[in-house]
Amino acid sequence: MDEGRLMEFVGRFVGDLGATMGAGGVVVGDRLGLYKALAGGRLRPHELAERTGTAVRYVEEWLRGQAAGGYVEYDAASGSYWLTEEQAFALTDPDGPIFVPGAFQLALGALKADEEITKAFRTGDGMGWHEHDGEVFAGCERFFRPGYSANLVGAWLPALEGVVERLRAGIRVADVGCGHGASTLLMARAFPNSTFTGSDYHAGSIEAARKQAGEAAGRVRFEVASAQDFGGGPYDLVTTFDALHDMGDPLGAARHVRERLAPDGTWMIVEPAAGESVADNLNPVGRVYYAFSAFLCVPNALSQEGGYALGAQAGEEPVRRLAAEAGFSRFRRVAETPFNLVYEARP
């Protein structure tokens, strides 16, 4: 045995264990407003506790762990803690382009299904999205919405051929697998002349989406429906955001999109960033997506009819093949970020 390699692995394990437990600390800090209070300036533990209505001994231990993990800064001379501008940017603004607590909320919610997923590994059965803890649904929206806010209206839609001009003039849009409606409402608020229908098979998510519609409610409709049977149309634009790989029958969904799409319409497919092979995905982003996929995406797909389980790291080629089999004649990658790939499919 190579002792150096062993200790290297142990070091990796210690870092992972600290990150695993640290996830809980991030979620607690978000829920109690601890990060937001620290963003206002340097505070000692008792001052932070007073500002947030929390118990000082808990806050003291929380701050020490956060400082050890690099999520909070510490000055030994004064005993005070604070956030840098960059830490505050990532930890305190749920509407910003990066919001770390939402990702940890999703992860902790997914891990609550560890017993059910262990059983599924043995039996090969699935576990539906609707069977997960409620933190999964809320965390998913808080995890993905910042990326959509940063890219959807300003970069992804303009990358599609002629779509922004049509949205401004007024068209019909279907957002399939919309969850809590973050993507649907971002588009609706940016393009007030167009009408939008968001659909998802999970009734609880649709209920949450309807509550968030606000001033856009007159131009947005949310319905409980699967990707294989959503109604309406013909649509000029159909979108699927980080949803196609979760489906047990993505080919059936693609065919239904093709049926509901206008002859000159566009299907925008947003999927997790992934390379073309397993080796291409052996990196930090791939690790995150494979882990989520084993707990959420593959079990959900296996719980449905269809026989597919693409997983979150399927890559471009399987999506291209699905589009072609469904009757789309044109397909291209139009945009990408460190976390997403964006495709355009046309009849």
Rank of each mutant, 00 (worst) to 15 (best):
A216T: 08
R255M: 05
A213F: 07
A254P: 02
G214P: 02
A254C: 15
G233S: 06
E215I: 02
G248L: 04
Y235A: 10
G248W: 04
E215L: 13
D249N: 14
R255G: 06
G248R: 10
Q228P: 00
A216H: 12
A217M: 13
A225N: 01
R210I: 04
S226V: 00
L251D: 12
H245N: 09
K211V: 14
G252I: 02
S226H: 12
D229P: 10
Q212M: 15
Y235E: 08
G252Y: 07
M247Q: 08
P250Q: 03
G233M: 10
P234E: 08
G218H: 00
T240L: 12
H245D: 13
L244C: 07
V238N: 11
A243Y: 04
Y235D: 07
S226W: 05
D242A: 07
Q228C: 11
A209D: 05
F241W: 13
G252T: 05
G252C: 00
A254I: 01
P250L: 14
R219E: 08
L251K: 09
G248I: 05
V220F: 01
F230G: 02
D229Y: 06
D246Y: 15
G233I: 02
G231T: 10
H245R: 00
E215K: 10
F222E: 09
A217Q: 12
T240Y: 00
L237I: 05
G233E: 05
P250V: 11
G232F: 10
D249A: 03
A209T: 04
D229H: 05
G248N: 11
Q228L: 14
G218L: 03
A209E: 06
A254E: 09
G232D: 04
F230T: 01
A213H: 04
L244T: 13
L237E: 08
H245E: 15
D246M: 10
D246S: 10
V224Y: 10
Q228Y: 01
G231L: 01
R219Q: 12
D236C: 02
L244F: 06
V238K: 03
M247T: 03
D246T: 14
L237K: 11
P250M: 12
P250A: 13
S226D: 11
F222D: 01
K211H: 09
V224P: 05
A213P: 06
P250S: 13
S226M: 07
Q228H: 02
R221T: 15
Y235G: 05
L251V: 04
R210F: 08
Q212W: 09
A209Q: 03
G248D: 10
G214N: 04
A216K: 09
G231M: 00
G252P: 09
P250F: 03
E223Y: 06
A254S: 14
L244R: 08
A253D: 06
F222P: 08
A254N: 09
Q228W: 01
P234K: 14
D246L: 12
P250N: 14
D249H: 06
A227W: 07
G218E: 04
G214Y: 02
Q228K: 15
E215N: 13
M247S: 12
V238W: 03
A243W: 00
A209V: 12
T239A: 10
G214T: 02
A254M: 14
P234L: 06
G231K: 10
G252N: 07
A225K: 08
